[in-house]
Amino acid sequence: MDIGHRLRTIREERGLSQRELAAKAGLTNGTISLIEKNKTSPSVASLKSLLDAIPISMAEFFSPLEDAETPKVFYRQSEFIEISPSSEGQVSLRQLGNAEQHSLQVLHETYPPGADTGPELLVHDGEEAGVVISGEIEVTVDNAVSVLAPGDGYMFDSRLPHRFRNIGTVTCVVVSACTPPSF
Rank of each mutant, 00 (worst) to 15 (best):
L148W: 03
D142Y: 10
N166C: 00
F61A: 09
S87A: 15
V73M: 12
K72C: 06
E69V: 13
G26L: 13
V147F: 07
S49G: 08
A23N: 03
L107P: 03
I137G: 09
T171D: 11
I54Q: 10
V145R: 09
N166G: 02
K24G: 10
T171F: 07
L34S: 04
G4E: 08
P150E: 01
P85Y: 12
T31H: 15
P119K: 13
G126S: 06
D125M: 07
E69Q: 15
V139E: 05
T110E: 01
D2T: 05
S146I: 12
A68I: 08
R14P: 03
A59D: 13
L65G: 14
F164N: 04
L148D: 03
G4Y: 07
A99S: 13
L7P: 10
L121E: 09
R8F: 06
R163Y: 15
F80G: 07
Y154F: 15
S33Y: 02
A129F: 11
D157V: 11
L96E: 00
Q105T: 09
G130A: 01
F74K: 05
V170I: 09
V73E: 10
D157H: 14
L148F: 02
D142N: 15
H102W: 09
Q77S: 14
P112C: 08
G89K: 12
S57G: 12
I133N: 00
G118Q: 00
R19V: 11
Y75R: 05
T110F: 00
Y75K: 12
F62M: 14
E69G: 11
L65V: 15
N98F: 08
Q18C: 09
G130C: 03
F80P: 02
E120K: 12
M58P: 01
S49R: 13
E20L: 01
T70Y: 00
S57H: 14
P119D: 10
L93G: 02
E20Y: 03
V91D: 01
L21E: 02
E128G: 05
L51R: 06
P181K: 09
S134Q: 11
T31C: 12
K48C: 13
V91P: 01
L104N: 06
V175G: 01
T140Y: 11
E120W: 04
S33Q: 08
E136Y: 07
E127D: 04
D67F: 10
V132L: 08
L93H: 06
P71L: 07
M1S: 14
L50T: 03
D116W: 07
A59M: 12
A68K: 12
E100H: 13
T110N: 01
S158P: 02
G168M: 07
S17Q: 05
A177G: 14
F61T: 06
R94S: 06
S49Q: 09
T179G: 13
L122T: 00
G126E: 06
C178R: 02
P64F: 00
T9S: 11
P119Y: 05
T171R: 13
V170L: 10
D116N: 14
S158Y: 07
